[in-house]
Design a protein around this nucleic acid. Structure first.
Lengths: 150, 150
DNA sequence: ACCAAATGGTTGCATTATGCAACCAAAAGA
DNA sequence: TCTTTTGGTTGCATAATGCAACCATTTGGT
């Protein structure tokens, strides 16, 4: 493969994000972390991921500041992987993916898990809006390129 | 690799989404499509992707209904790749990734492209809300597992 | 204390995925 | 007509991934 292209230097924030969490497993691990999983074995069992890959991903996600390693909450000797603030801020990404998947990747009537508010059980949605709060479609938006722009 | 695990059968919508668009290049291609690119050469030049990979990804994205192939708009013989409704509905995912990247992957003061409303130039943001419009944090939400649940 | 099992990995090897370069047919331009 | 551009495909080399075997440390049971 010669070395996978890196997008770290790209001026597009989406590209940099994908460079960090765009690989196959990272976002699934983050999803499980949102779901409350913290231990190596929990991730491994729940995702069915190979242990060496999981080991590598947890290390990388930790290095990049998305997860942090903390001592066991129950006094045991093992360590736990927790989301950092940076990791928790991936919440909208997860919700966006979930919303799209619900809409297009399930047959009508097919059951799927749902994201709801804990207190009220209300469904959670996500909306694209302008600064002053108006909902907006892709066609009405435009990407302003900043760097080497004419 | 023996065969990459498929999440098509997963009951979690996020997982299915990642199964479809979670590979390295697909979302970048979709991003460029949002940016108005339509032709093979445009994607190839802009992304710096290998031509065989691009060819494969465009085919896959088309098969899965995210892109569609249409005849040239200017009467030429070549074909163009356009987003379908399914593809356009990935907009919130792109915005979410962009927003996260802006916040965490740029040094203070470092320039990056921006997403704004065409008409007014206003910045575009995305918000996670309940059905009745209240903004909500990850901690206040919970994933309801539907299938083989106790 | 002692043995057994679970936990949290690491290492080696086999298979895929990706990248690069060379090649090619069809279309567009001169 | 000749040349260049476009839109790919094919072959080969390397990187990423998966599986299984192994191992050190904890944990649990007796």
């Amino acid at each position: 493969m010669v070395k996978r292209k890196s997008l770290q230097g790209d001026y597009c924030p989406s590209a940099r994000s994908l460079d960090v969490i765009g690989d196959w497993w990272s976002l699934l691990i983050v999803r499980d972390a949102f779901d409350g999983l913290t231990r190596f074995g929990e991730f491994q069992k729940n995702l069915g991921i190979a242990k060496n890959i999981l080991s590598d991903r947890l290390r990388t996600l930790t290095e990049r500041g998305i997860l942090k390693v903390v001592a066991s909450s129950d006094g045991g000797a093992h360590q736990e992987y927790h989301l950092t603030a940076m990791g928790r801020d991936l919440f909208p990404v997860m919700v966006a993916l979930r919303q799209w998947g619900e809409q297009y990747l399930f047959k009508p009537g097919e059951k799927h898990s749902k994201l709801v508010e804990r207190k009220t059980g209300q469904a959670i949605r996500l909306e694209v809006r302008t600064e002053d709060g108006r909902s907006i479609s892709p066609e009405e938006s435009v990407i302003l390129k900043v760097p080497h722009s004419p």
